[in-house]
Each structure stands twice: as C-alpha cells, then as structure tokens.
C-alpha cells in the first residue's frame, strides 16, 4: 500500500505559507443573545428551508403530536424502538409515513437540528420516512454552528447529522423541489417548559 510513499512525498513538499501556521487564533464564538431571540431566528430560518414549526407547552406536546399526526411512529418510545431494530428488513422502514424522533438541539442561524445514534434505533429512519417530525425543546437552541460544535461530542457517537428542512433539489433548471430522496416534509415540534422566558 502507498501510505508511506504518500506521507514521504507530503513531508518533502509541505508548504509553509510564509507565516506562522500554528493553530489559528480562535475568534470568540458569537453567543446568542436571549433564548427568545434564538428561538425566533431558529423558527424563521427553519421556515425558510421549507420546514414547518409547531410551538406548544411541554405538557401538551404528546397529545398534540398524536392528534396532529395520526399514525405517527414515535421513536422516543422504547416499544417502537424495539420493533424497528437491527433485524427489521429495510422494506418495513420504507413503509414509514411519519416518524417522530428527538432532536437534541437546534441552531438559530440556519434552522438545523442535531440528531445522533442515541435518538434512533436505525440510522436510516430520518431519511426514509416520508414525513419527519423532530421534537426539540425551546430552551435547546444555540446561536451558530460554532456554538453547536462545542455541544457535540463526535467521539461519543457512531453517527450524527444536522438536518435543516426537508430533502430538496434544484437540479432541474434550478426549480426548487422538496423531497428529492429524503423526507418530503419536515416538522419541528418545539415544547416550552413553564420556566421558558417569554
């Protein structure tokens, strides 16, 4: 294998770019102002990506979800997770109309929501479902991607993804079409705890 020869060639050729190339100075990460401002920009960014938003109180979240999305598969519940485990054939996943997953936190500047292995029994669920519903607490919105990466621990998970809106394409004459391969529709349910600042 060519590993050693590639590394050797890099050692001989690597540039110095005429300046100190130590770890660049990290500019302070802009921090979101208040919870309410962060939530507001999260919602408008998410809507701009074609996503839908449902705001509610934490207490009413579950009943609201099952009322609004009848037949939804709730993957926050252990018995549903068990039914869709490692042994379940892909064809079963392909039949999923609406799936509910927990989203750990959202990003105000772009409407993205972070999900990782612990939120789903199989990694294909957020992509193969026709309609994806994510549940993310109103207090769990960070300002920017720079803040977001401080919250994540990649080494602690096998797979993680930011999802911002439904799957989309503009490959035919730049016309925007939702539902290229992944979810055609994306909803984020945002429950607020009683102590969420108004």
């Amino acid at each position: 294998m060519s590993k050693q020869s590639i590394l050797e060639s890099i050692r001989q050729n690597k540039p110095d770019f005429q300046r100190e190339t130590g770890k660049p100075e990290q500019k302070p990460v802009p921090v979101s102002k208040s919870q309410t401002t962060a939530l507001k920009s999260f919602i408008s960014a998410l809507e701009a990506t074609g996503g839908e938003v449902v705001e509610c109180s934490a207490a009413e979240a579950d009943s609201l979800i099952s009322e609004k999305f009848p037949g939804i598969l709730d993957f926050t519940r252990p018995e549903i997770r068990e039914k869709y485990g490692e042994e379940t054939p892909l064809s079963e996943f392909d039949k999923i109309e609406t799936a509910l997953l927990n989203g750990a936190f959202g990003v105000a500047e772009n409407g993205a929501v972070w999900i990782e292995d612990r939120d789903m029994p199989r990694r294909i669920i957020p992509f193969i479902a026709q309609h994806l519903v994510l549940k993310t607490e109103a207090s769990q919105i960070v300002g920017t991607m720079q803040e977001a990466y401080r919250r994540i621990n990649l080494s602690g998970t096998g797979y993680g993804v930011f999802i911002a809106g439904p799957s989309k394409t503009a490959d035919i004459e730049q016309s925007l079409v939702y539902g290229a391969h992944g979810a055609v529709r994306l909803t984020v349910v945002i429950p607020k705890m009683p102590d969420f600042e108004a």
Partner: peptide
C-alpha cells in the same frame, strides 16, 4: 467544522446550511 459549515452552503448556493450535514464515525 463550525467555521466551514457556516461558509460552505452560504457561498455555494446561498443557503444558510445544506439540508443534511452528516458525520460518519463508526
């Protein structure tokens, strides 16, 4: 990644981020 994901899609297609930013670890 915080720096690059803020730049990439904005500069590519004028979106604030791509719909999916996937991190494959294991």
């Amino acid at each position: 990644l915080g720096v690059f994901t803020r730049l990439l899609a904005r500069n590519a297609t004028g979106q604030p981020v791509t719909t999916y930013t996937s991190h494959y670890m294991r």
